[in-house]
Design a protein around this nucleic acid. Structure first.
Lengths: 217, 217
DNA sequence: ACCACCGATGACAGTCCTTGACATCAGTGA
DNA sequence: TCACTGATGTCAAGGACTGTCATCGGTGGT
């Protein structure tokens, strides 16, 4: 099969232009940014990418997904957390978030563009929430694999993603402040400050609910 | 206008059967449970409720919403947190979650039915996530109103909802264990145990990021 | 060279979701 | 009595998706 290099990438040259998927993703970012998501049809995105509407839906299960097709990050997050055997669960998750944040903070401009589009359409916000929820699920599985108890695994996974979500929002708001990695770390620390003292008192409200599960000492 | 009492509720009797909205919600729960969400059309739900498809979409902005039309809970959550002036932010949120959990734990059967349907369809999971996200937003606003700094408000709001999500999952799994209220309290305490010690070490990873913001003492 | 096969795409019809526009009619209030 | 309101019905249309079949370069074996 003939091959060609375009923009540093190796392409398999077939009957059609290469990287239809990437072209559609770019076209979507452009059109959604110009006219808005709702006023752009899938057929229009496909047309700008030089393919038919049918091909669009072969690459993306639905119209929204063209903006969210990057399960890569989730997998790298999970892989990192799984790899760091020696660390505590919280530290391992923090390390995983470092990796993800590191990747994202290198493309702040694209992130801002995307965020603007998503902020304007509830359907896209739902999809974003779902994507982050899949991070939680992946994290939970990995944490269980590390030996963390099931309930604690889900709790740590969900809260960690919540922290990341907050950090991401902070990072996007900041004009040109710190990197996302540092922001995530700071947010984690803030969580500690916030709950550190407060939760002690909360134990009193549910007396007995913990007996036997957390032996004193 | 003529009025009638049905099932303890006062209805305004018009040209049509009363409570079209409620009938559609029930019909949806039934049909989605029987055939599944995807294999049930909005027109079918409407038909079982004795109205037309058009009326369905007048009551619910989209097909999913028929399962999620209860912003009531969010409002009660926000109201409770806003009312409890004396308590600390974390305690106030906990009190708010108590109220919400109290309402939900009285209808465990319906909750389980709903959860089964939602678990089977990604689109519904997205909507559920969005609903909980709206709790976060509401919480954040209320917490700011209480004087909590913006960043901390969002962090506490997001993490609190994450905790609730975990508690809700635990409560649904448990055969016939504790109530949801107790489960939420326990989960909050678990969060404390999980992060209490761990986060201290995390401060070392982002040196300087907190200087001046949290004076020692 | 020849040929059978594969895989990405095009073409097209059909279902369902969702919305806009207009009609209907019981109840309400002047 | 009558104009008005509000919830509903009716109809048409557009856009999101899906199933099915046709197309045709590239590949690999002979």
């Amino acid at each position: 099969m003939s091959r060609t290099v375009i923009g540093g990438k190796l392409y398999r040259m077939g009957r059609w232009e290469p990287d239809a998927r990437g072209r559609m993703q770019e076209a979507a970012l452009e059109l959604f940014g110009e006219r808005g998501y709702a006023r752009t049809t899938a057929a229009e995105v496909a047309e700008r990418a030089g393919v038919t509407e049918r091909t669009f839906f072969r690459h993306f299960p639905d119209k929204r997904e063209v903006l969210f097709a990057n399960d890569d990050l989730r997998d790298r997050l999970a892989a990192t957390v799984a790899a760091d055997e020696g660390a505590s669960p919280v530290e391992a998750v923090a390390a995983g978030l470092d990796v993800v944040a590191g990747v994202l903070q290198d493309r702040r401009e694209v992130a801002v563009r995307r965020a603007r589009i998503i902020a304007a359409h509830a359907e896209l916000q739902e999809r974003e929430l779902k994507k982050l929820a899949s991070w939680s699920t992946a994290l939970e599985h990995v944490l269980r694999g590390r030996g963390l108890a099931g309930p604690d695994a889900m709790l740590l996974a969900e809260v960690s993603v919540a922290v990341f979500r907050v950090a991401y929002a902070r990072w996007l708001e900041e004009g040109t402040g710190r990197g996302l990695v540092a922001t995530v770390r700071e947010t984690l620390a803030d969580l500690g400050d916030l709950f550190d003292h407060a939760v002690q008192g909360l134990h009193n409200h549910s007396p007995g609910s913990h007996e036997g599960r957390h032996p004193p000492g």
